[in-house]
Nucleic acid binder design. Structure first.
Lengths: 189, 189
DNA sequence: TTATTTGCCTAAAGGTATTAGGCAAATGTA
DNA sequence: TACATTTGCCTAATACCTTTAGGCAAATAA
């Protein structure tokens, strides 16, 4: 029989597409096999197991996201950079909900340090160069920004804001104003 | 044969315990049946299906969380109230990781409006009475606070902060300072 | 005490994950 | 070109988990 040309790479990529179309929790070895019109067992030559597949999708998403962030930050500083980075996360989550969910997967420590997650932290810290924070405060601020970006995007995508009145775009924009004001006026310990 | 005394209520409660012990993703109808030493099919007289079980655990967690929040807010105002509410979420997530994960489950609209999620929004808004914000800004602030609380807790629990140096307790405390400063000094549109 | 409801059981079908072992296609070697 | 080896996908089998249908006995109502 002719071969399907499976590759770990192609499987991860197809898994990411599947995640965006059907949801990350619908990403299954079986579904992926169907997509390639191949028997399930065949995938196990390329993937260790189901978790391995999910991890690869997560790493792929983290890379894409970091690449977009790097692009967006180029040539920007201060509030401009802050907004650009925040928009990268929000837009990515909207365009690729499944991939974004995958990026939230908890990675084991070794995998995590080798992932693009490190770049994300660095880029967030880079934004703070436009503001005047002491070294330890920079770390606190990085964590706070990460919390807001992730928290906001998650809640908005999950419909957490959908009931109340003012549209979320307005809130998003005011959130950017608020974060900028906060960073310019960071309270001393 | 003697009856086990199953109840939708008891199942949800046991499911919550199971979630905390093994993780919310390990909550399964089969595992729950084992816990009651009963056959799997027996649970289907009390639960519509697996998703129903998860939803009930989510609702239970949202209630517990709202009760704790109400307790914590009683008699407090301003930054004191802000910190108390934030701590409720963080502490609950640490004590009951499975329940907290359950509370993040996306509920369908009808279920959501009937849930304690509404109380959460109200309590967050109550905190803002200690600050001087216009009506639309209150909504923006509620959303921002929700984002920070949820985002921070999720990232911290997920190990997202574990690599870097300053301990997370310090960041948490500085985050409270920052939010208080922000609310006292909310930027005008 | 009898009738009815209700709770848990057996049986069965279908889906996902994973491993073991086989055959044929692709690739390397003489 | 012929042969040997690797590699890729397949069949087969096991083990869960989910869900529905139908049965019998315990609890409850009449």
């Amino acid at each position: 029989m002719a071969r399907a040309g499976l590759t770990t790479e192609r499987l991860a990529r197809a898994g990411a597409e599947l995640a965006d179309e059907a949801g990350f929790d619908q990403v299954t070895v079986s579904a992926l096999a169907r997509r390639f019109d191949v028997k399930v067992a065949s995938l196990y030559s390329h993937l260790r197991n189901s978790h391995d597949l999910k991890t690869r999708i997560a790493l792929l998403a983290l890379e894409e996201l970091a690449d977009r962030a790097a692009d967006a930050l180029a040539g920007r500083a201060g509030k401009d950079a802050l907004t650009a980075l925040a928009n990268v996360y929000r837009d990515y989550a909207r365009e690729h909900p499944g991939r974004y969910a995958a990026a939230q997967l908890r990675l084991d420590p070794e995998t995590a340090v080798a992932s693009a997650g490190v770049r994300h932290a660095q880029m967030t810290r880079a934004i703070l160069r436009g503001y005047d924070l002491t070294e330890p405060d920079q770390t606190h601020a990085v964590r706070l920004l990460g919390s807001v970006f992730h928290g906001y995007v998650t809640l908005e995508m999950g419909g957490g804001f959908s009931h109340s009145a003012p549209d979320t775009q307005e809130t998003w924009s005011r959130t950017m104003d608020a974060l900028d004001a906060l960073l310019r006026n960071w309270p001393a310990s």
